[in-house]
Design a protein around this nucleic acid. Structure first.
Length: 824
RNA sequence: GCCCGGGUGGUGAAAUUGGUAGACACGCGAGACUUAAAAUCUUGUGGCCAUAGCGGUCGUGCCGGUUCAAGUCCGGCCCCGGGCACCA
C-alpha cells in the first residue's frame, strides 16, 4: 500500500502535463540554434489564421507536424519547428463589424488564446521565433520585396473585374456573394472593373512546371493538380481579319479543325462585344445580365450556356469566308484573348451551343480508317483526333501533319503562329480591404506609380481606426494617403489597397529562420535552414498557397536571398477534419473546439485519439468518443504496467540464448514493433498503425506475467520500446515514465536499433488454397521447399476433401505465404 | 461544368509489392468482482447456413473484364470530399 501514497502511482494527466511542460519551458527543450553537429531538419506545419479558438483541424495538423518533428529529433536531427500567425484577412473585418472591436485588437486577443491552447497541447515549438504577419516588423519586408519586384519589372497594373456591391459601395469576396447577392446588403452584385496590381507568376510558369518533376517527396496527386493548374498547351494563335482592320485573335490547340469553324464566340466583356452593343439594346441587356454573376469560374461553368449574335462577322483566315461573331456567357475574358473559335462538329460544348441556336455543324475530321463520314454528328461532336476531310488541300492529313500544315499556311499569310500557352494567369495581389499589408506605392500625377523608398518603409497600417464595415477606413483618411511624391516632391497619394494575404503566407517559412532580423528580410540563418524538409498542411492548399510560395521562393532566390530552388522538399497533404460532413472552417465558428476534451481527458489523449482515428491524408469526420478510450489506454495499458514493473526493482541484461519460448516471442514482437513503427513514422507516415502496433505489443505484455530475471528483462525492453515509440504522439506521459525508469530526459533520447537476431523465426504459417479458396493453414519451416509444403498440405483433411477425385492441374507456391492447388 | 482524391462490418479503420479481407480500437452481448453501481478484468462479436466439434457459403459502392488468385489491375457507371484564381 505504500505505493498508493506515492502520487506517481496513479495516472493523472494534469500532473503529467504540468511536469513535462514545466520541464520543457525551464530547459528550453525546443529552442534550436544554427550551431549544431547534427543534420538540420526543418519541420513546418502551415500556420493558422487566428480565428479565435483551435478546432480539430488544427489539432490534427499540429499533432501530425509535432509527431514528425519529435520523431526526427529521436533520429538525431537538429529539428526546427516554429509557429506563427497568418494574421491579416477578412474574418477580422467581419468580427470588427459584428463585435464593434478593431481588427487589430480582435486578432491579438485571438492569438493570445490560441497560443495558450497550442502550448497546452504540448507541441515542441520554438516559441522564440514566433511571428505574426500583421506585425510591421514582418510586413515591412514584404513591402520592401514588392518594391524590388517593381524595379525588376515583375509587377504591373491592369484593369480587372471584381464583385461590386452597389448598395454598400464595396468590393465583395467570392464567398461574400450568396446567390448573386451581397451577403450584408442583399443587393444583386455587379461586375466592376478596377485597376489592380499583378505579379508576373506566368514568367515562372515553365520553371514551376518543370520542377514538379524534381519533388519526389510530394504526393503525386498534388503535383498532378499543379500541372493541370499551370496547364501548358501547344497550339496556334490565329487572327480572323475584320472589316475595320482590327483582327479578332483566338488561340486553339486544335488547328486541324480550322476548316470546321462556323462561328466565333467572345466574352461579354470583350471590346468587340462592347462596341457591338452600342445601339443594340437587346445585346446591351444580355451583356448586363452576364455581368450580374459572380466572378468565380465555377459559377460560370455551371451557368446555362447562352449567347447572342454580335451582328458583325470576321473573315476566315484561310478561306476568307464570313464567320459570324457571337457573344457568349461561357467565354472567360481573363483567359487567353477572351475569344474562341467554335467548331461544333468536333467540340461538344460548341456542338450543343450550335444546336441550341441553329448554327451550322460542319464535319472536317473523320475517324482513322473510315471511308465516308465514319461518325454521326447528329448525336454529338466527334472530338477524337482523326483524319481531315472537307478541308481542301488538307484532306487526308492526320492531326500532327494537319497541325503543321495549317500553322504554316497561317504563318505564310501572317495570320497565325504556333504558341505555347499556359492556363495559369498572373497573380492579382490588390485587395480593396483594410486589414492587410498596405501596398507600398505612391501615385503621382507627374511620375505615375512610384515605389516607396526603402528608408520610408514600412508603410504602417493605422490600427486606431473606426471600422464601420462599409469600405476600408484608410480609403477615407486623407491624413494617411495624402503624401509627397518621392521623385518630384509634388503632391501625391498612397495606394489604399492592401495585399492579398497569400503574399504573407508565401514567404513566412523563410522568415522563421531569421524572424528577429531587423536590417534584412532574410539572413545567413535562412541559408542554414535552406528549405523546409517536411511541410504539413491541409489538402485545400494543394494549389494556390503552395504554388504562390513556390513562385515566391524562386523570386527570392533570383534576388539572392536564398540558395535553394524549392521551398518544401517533402509535403504531407492532410485530409480535412469534417464536421457534419463539411469542412471545419472559420465560418463554422466554435465547432470542434478541443478545449473541453483537453480538460477532461488530457492533451496526450486528444493527440493520441486524433492520430489513431485515421491516416493523415484521409478526410474524416471527427468523433469525440475516441478520446476517453485513449485516456483509458494510457492509464491501464501504459502507465499502470510501467509503474507496476518499476515496483519490481532493477533488471538484469537480456541473455538471448537463455530465453524461454514465451520470452523469445515477446522479444521478437518488441523488435518487430520497433521496425514496423520506424517505417510507419518515416516512410509511410501512418501514425494510426503506429498506435495500433503499440497497442498489440502492450496486449502481449499484459498477458506475459513472468517474474523471472530474464522475464523481467524482456518485459523491461518491451515497455521501454513502447514508451519510446509513443513519445512523439503522447509526449507528456512518456516524458514522465522515461524519467521514472531512470532513463533521463526523453527529449535527448535516440531511436533504438532493431536487433535483427531477435526477429528470426523458424516456422511460418502458410495458407493452402484449392482453386484460390482458403481450405487450410499449415505450419511450415521458413523458406521451405515446394515439395515439403505440398506434402504437408496434401495430408490436410480439408484439402483432401476438395482435391479428392479431381486432378491437380497446377500448383502455385509463394514461399512463406500461400500454396494454391488448381484442380478440375 | 472542369481538375484531383475517396467509397471495406453497427462505427473509426487495417490489409505496405496481385497472395489469409476486417489487424487495432469504439460500440454492443455474456460473465467475474461488488449489497449495488462506477471502474477494472475475462470472453464473444461481418451476413447467412450448419454446429458437440470440424466446417460451408456470400461479402470491400454498382456493372463487366484480366488472373491460379483482385479491396488491390483494366473498362464503364453511381455517390461523397477538396480545389476552381477575392475564405484562408
Amino acid at each position: 500500500m505504500t505505493r498508493n501514497s506515492d502520487s506517481s502511482a496513479v495516472y493523472s494527466h494534469e500532473s503529467v502535463e504540468q511536469q513535462a511542460q514545466t520541464f520543457w519551458k525551464e530547459h528550453g527543450s525546443f529552442e534550436v540554434t544554427e550551431n549544431s553537429d547534427k543534420p538540420k531538419f526543418y519541420c513546418l506545419s502551415m500556420f493558422p489564421y487566428p480565428s479565435g479558438r483551435l478546432h480539430m483541424g488544427h489539432v490534427r495538423n499540429y499533432t501530425l507536424g509535432d509527431v514528425i518533428g519529435r520523431f526526427q529529433r529521436l533520429k538525431g536531427k537538429n529539428v526546427l519547428q516554429p509557429m506563427g500567425w497568418d494574421a491579416f484577412g477578412l474574418p477580422a473585418e467581419n468580427a470588427a463589424i459584428k463585435h464593434r472591436i478593431p481588427p487589430a485588437r480582435w486578432t491579438f486577443e485571438n492569438i493570445e488564446h490560441m497560443r495558450g491552447q497550442l502550448q497546452a497541447l504540448g507541441f515542441a515549438f520554438d516559441w522564440s521565433r514566433e511571428l505574426a504577419t500583421c506585425d510591421p516588423d514582418y510586413y515591412r519586408w514584404e513591402q520592401w520585396f514588392f518594391t524590388r519586384l517593381f524595379r525588376k519589372g515583375l509587377v504591373y497594373k491592369k484593369a480587372a473585374w471584381v464583385n461590386w456591391d452597389p448598395r454598400d459601395q464595396t468590393v465583395l469576396a467570392n464567398e461574400q456573394v450568396i446567390n448573386g447577392r451581397g451577403w450584408r446588403s442583399d443587393a444583386p452584385v455587379e461586375r466592376r472593373e478596377l485597376a489592380q496590381w499583378f505579379v508576373k507568376i506566368t514568367d515562372y510558369a515553365e520553371e514551376l512546371l518543370g520542377y514538379l518533376d524534381k519533388l519526389p517527396g510530394w504526393p503525386e496527386k498534388v503535383k498532378t493538380m499543379q500541372r493541370n493548374w499551370i496547364g501548358r498547351s501547344e497550339g496556334v494563335e490565329i487572327q480572323f481579319p475584320a472589316d475595320d482592320g482590327s483582327p479578332l485573335t483566338v488561340y486553339t490547340t486544335r488547328p486541324d479543325t480550322l476548316m470546321g469553324v462556323t462561328y466565333l464566340a467572345v466574352a461579354p466583356q470583350h471590346p468587340l462585344a462592347t462596341a457591338a452593343a452600342a445601339g443594340n439594346p437587346e445585346l446591351t441587356a444580355f451583356i448586363e445580365a452576364c455581368n450580374g454573376t459572380r466572378v468565380a469560374e465555377a459559377d460560370m461553368a455551371r451557368m446555362e450556356k447562352l449567347g447572342m449574335p454580335a451582328g458583325v462577322s470576321v473573315s476566315h483566315p484561310l478561306t476568307g469566308e464570313a464567320v459570324p461573331v457571337w457573344v457568349a456567357n461561357f467565354v472567360l475574358m481573363e483567359y487567353g484573348s477572351g475569344a474562341v473559335m467554335s467548331v461544333p462538329g468536333h467540340d461538344q460544348r460548341d456542338w450543343e451551343f450550335a444546336r441550341k441556336y441553329g448554327l451550322p455543324v460542319r464535319q472536317v475530321i473523320k475517324p482513322v480508317g473510315s471511308g465516308a463520314a465514319g461518325c454521326d454528328l447528329e448525336t454529338g461532336a466527334f472530338t477524337e483526333y482523326g483524319v481531315l476531310m472537307n478541308s481542301g488541300d488538307f484532306d487526308g492529313l492526320d492531326f500532327e501533319r494537319a497541325f503543321d500544315a495549317i500553322a504554316s499556311a497561317l504563318g505564310g499569310k501572317g495570320l497565325g503562329e504556333r504558341q505555347v500557352q499556359y492556363r495559369l494567369r498572373d497573380w492579382g495581389v490588390s485587395r480593396q480591404r483594410y486589414w492587410g499589408c498596405p501596398i507600398p506605392i505612391i501615385n503621382c500625377e507627374q511620375c505615375g506609380a512610384v515605389p516607396v523608398p526603402d528608408e520610408d518603409l514600412p508603410v504602417l497600417l493605422p490600427t486606431d481606426v473606426e471600422f464601420e464595415g462599409v469600405g476600408s477606413p484608410i480609403k477615407k483618411m486623407p491624413s494617411w494617403y495624402e503624401t509627397g511624391c518621392p521623385e518630384c516632391g509634388g503632391p501625391a497619394e498612397r495606394e489604399t489597397d492592401t495585399f492579398d494575404t497569400f503574399m504573407e503566407s508565401s514567404w513566412y517559412y523563410a522568415r522563421f529562420a531569421s524572424s528577429n532580423a531587423t536590417d534584412s528580410m532574410l539572413d545567413e540563418r535562412a541559408r542554414y535552414w535552406r528549405s523546409v524538409d517536411h511541410y504539413v498542411g491541409g489538402e485545400e492548399h494543394a494549389i494556390l498557397h503552395l504554388l504562390y510560395a513556390r513562385f515566391f521562393h524562386k523570386v527570392m532566390r533570383d534576388e539572392g536571398l536564398l540558395e535553394s530552388d524549392e521551398p518544401f522538399e517533402k509535403l504531407l497533404s492532410l485530409g480535412m477534419v469534417l464536421d457534419g460532413g463539411t469542412k471545419m472552417s472559420k465560418s463554422a465558428g466554435d465547432a470542434g473546439d478541443p478545449q473541453h476534451l483537453m480538460d477532461t481527458h488530457g492533451a496526450d489523449a486528444v493527440r493520441m485519439a486524433m492520430m489513431f482515428a485515421a491516416p493523415p491524408e484521409q478526410p474524416f469526420e471527427w468523433s469525440e468518443s475516441g478520446v476517453a478510450s485513449a485516456n483509458r489506454w494510457l492509464r491501464t495499458r501504459l502507465w499502470n504496467p510501467v509503474i507496476a514493473h518499476i515496483a519490481g526493482g532493477d533488471v538484469v541484461d537480456i541473455d538471448p540464448c537463455a530465453l524461454t519460448e514465451a520470452q523469445t516471442d515477446l522479444r521478437r514482437l518488441t523488435h518487430e514493433t520497433l521496425k514496423k513503427c520506424e517505417d510507419d513514422f518515416e516512410r509511410r507516415l501512418a501514425f494510426n498503425t503506429v498506435v495500433a502496433a503499440v497497442m498489440s505489443l502492450q496486449n502481449q505484455v499484459m498477458r506475459f506475467n513472468d517474474d523471472s530475471e530474464q522475464g523481467r528483462a524482456v518485459e523491461r525492453e518491451a515497455l521501454t520500446v513502447a514508451i519510446l515509440i509513443m513519445s512523439p504522439i503522447t509526449p507528456h506521459i512518456c516524458h514522465v515514465l522515461w524519467q521514472q525508469l531512470g532513463l533521463g530526459d526523453i527529449e535527448q533520447a535516440q531511436w533504438m536499433p532493431v536487433d535483427e537476431a531477435a526477429l528470426e523465426k523458424t516456422a511460418v504459417e502458410l495458407i493452402v488454397q484449392v482453386n484460390g479458396k482458403l481450405r487450410s493453414r499449415i505450419e511450415a519451416p521458413v523458406d521451405a521447399q515446394k515439395e515439403t509444403v505440398v506434402e504437408l498440405a496434401r495430408q490436410q483433411e480439408n484439402v483432401k476433401k476438395f482435391v479428392a477425385d479431381k486432378t491437380i492441374r497446377k500448383t502455385i507456391y509463394v514461399p512463406n505465404k500461400v500454396l494454391n492447388f488448381v484442380v478440375s
